[in-house]
Structures are given as C-alpha cells and as structure tokens.
Simulated scan of single mutants.
Amino acid sequence: MKEFSISPASMPATLIKHRSLIWALVKREVLGRYRGSMLGILWSFFNPLMMLVIYTFVFSVVFKARWSGGSDSKVEFAMILFSGLLVFNILSECLNRAPTLVLMNVNYVKKVVFPLEILPVVSLGCSLFHGAVSLLVWVLFYLVFFGVPPATAWLFPVVILPMLFLTLGLSWLLASLGVYLRDVSQVILLMTTALLFLSPIFYPVSALPAEIQQVMHFNPLTSTIEDVRGVLVEGRFSNGSTYLLRITVAIVVSWAGFAWFQKTRKGFADVL
C-alpha cells in the first residue's frame, strides 16, 4: 500500500503541487453553492450585507447596546460585533464541514491519484472567499458611517494568519476522525456553538472579571478577534510581541493535523 509522506516539508509541497486543482475545486464549490438561484454569486454579498443591517438595527435600536469604553455611535457595536463574527465564521464553517469532507467525497477515496489531503484546503478556501466578501461589506459600512478605515486595516491578512493555520490543522484532524467516528460532526457542532458565546464576540475581554480574563486567553480565537478589532477599528496592533509564538504554534498544529491525516488515510477505503 502506498506510503504518504508526513514530513513538515511535504505539507507546503503538496499544496504548491496541487495549487491549480485546489483553485479549480474552490471555484467550482463557490459557484455551485449559488447555482440555480436568480442572483447567483451575488448572494455571497447580500447575505453578509443583510446580516450587518440586522445587527445594526437589533443592537443599536432595540437593545441600545454600546461597546464598553466605546463611543455613542449607533452602529459602532454592530461594526465591532461583525468584525468578531467574521473571524468566527471562517473557523466554524471549516470545522463544521471537516468531519464529513471525506464522507461526502467517497468517490475520491479509491482514486489513488486524487490528493485527498487538499479537501480541507478547499474548504478553507471557500470560507476565505465568504470571509473576504464579508470584510468588503464591513469596509463599505465603515466608509459610509465613519470614513476611511485605519491604515492598520491592511494588516488584517497578517493577524488572521495564525488562525488559518490552526483551522487547517484541526480540519485535517477532524476529516480523518469523521471517517472512523461518525459522531464527531455532532460533537463539533455543539462545540462551535459554545465557542460562539465563549469567545469575545458579543463583549470585550476587559468587561470580564480578572480571573476569567486569564481563562479566556486559552481560547485560540480570543487573540485573533482582539487583533482583528485592533487593526480594523482601533488602528493598533497590540499583540506583536506574542505574534511569532502564536503563528509558530499554529503552524506546528497545522503540520500535526496533516501528519495525522496522512497516517490514517490508508484505512479510509476499508471503512467506507
């Protein structure tokens, strides 16, 4: 039976080697999601646009919510909330799909020439597309209500990079586990729902008691969400001292997930 390399170098190598296939599959999946609808891919723009309008109305008009330490702007809370949800949605979409990635592509499993390891990368690519559209909506709203975003907004791809590596590693792990343990998808759905409220999306970390703030930083989303808000809203990048540590850990987790997937994929055909 063919042996699959798990060396650290093989992870970027396989992504580079199959970059054209990854791009084609991402494009096919994104377009396929909206195929048959009247507006087509425009729904990817209107969906986050409507959600941002709803958030603005609910939190600024109905709840009259204000961000701790923020201004009295009616849309500020919705903008800050949406920036946190943008990060969470990329992670949750990938993790919720990961356990069924191989199960939904059984026809690829017995094709030796097909690189199964790119399936989580394709899933992440689709999530990034929708995340980019949501970011575009956020920027348009910011331009309308507040003017030009801070210059640090260009650092958005940099601050989100550690979370992308982490998401990819977890996706590889869950894609493999989902083949052998079919309950994984249900567990992950519960966990991502809990993560939505246990992450500083609807509230700042500073609003919590000191002892809970320490615990919150064990949540990998906390630093990313705070950094994203820092560069998009506050015009600062405060966690530069720990950034190298975070991205190093994320890359290690990514490779560990890749190695697990490669070591366990030999049994996929037998199980399926």
Rank of each mutant, 00 (worst) to 15 (best):
V62H: 09
V139F: 13
S71D: 11
L155P: 06
G257L: 04
N89I: 12
L91N: 02
V113I: 14
P157G: 02
V58C: 01
M79C: 02
F146C: 10
V112P: 06
S44M: 09
Y243Q: 08
V159A: 01
L101C: 07
N107E: 13
F63A: 07
S5T: 15
D227M: 11
M163K: 08
V139A: 10
Q262D: 11
A250Y: 06
I201V: 10
L86Q: 11
W172I: 02
S71W: 08
V122T: 01
R97N: 13
V184R: 11
F4K: 14
V121C: 04
L232V: 05
P162I: 03
L39Q: 09
L135Y: 08
F114R: 03
A259N: 08
L128D: 04
V122Y: 05
R97D: 14
A13Y: 03
P99V: 06
L190F: 15
Q262H: 13
R182F: 10
N239D: 15
F59H: 01
Y243F: 14
R182E: 05
L143D: 11
P220L: 05
Y203A: 03
L95A: 00
W260S: 14
K111P: 06
T56P: 00
V137D: 00
A24N: 15
F237G: 09
I22R: 03
L174C: 07
S241H: 13
L95F: 02
G70W: 00
T222K: 07
A78D: 01
N105E: 10
R19Y: 12
I201W: 00
V62A: 11
L161I: 03
G125F: 05
L124C: 11
V87S: 03
V144A: 15
F63D: 07
F237M: 12
A151C: 08
M38W: 12
A98K: 00
K111W: 14
R229L: 01
S60V: 02
A24L: 15
G169Y: 03
R35C: 11
A13H: 06
P150A: 02
W260I: 11
S44W: 10
I212D: 10
G125N: 09
T192A: 04
K2P: 15
S206D: 14
S37D: 06
M11I: 04
C94E: 09
T222S: 03
W138F: 07
M104Y: 14
T192W: 04
R28M: 13
N89R: 14
P149M: 04
W154G: 09
E3P: 10
F4P: 03
L42Q: 04
R35V: 11
R28Q: 12
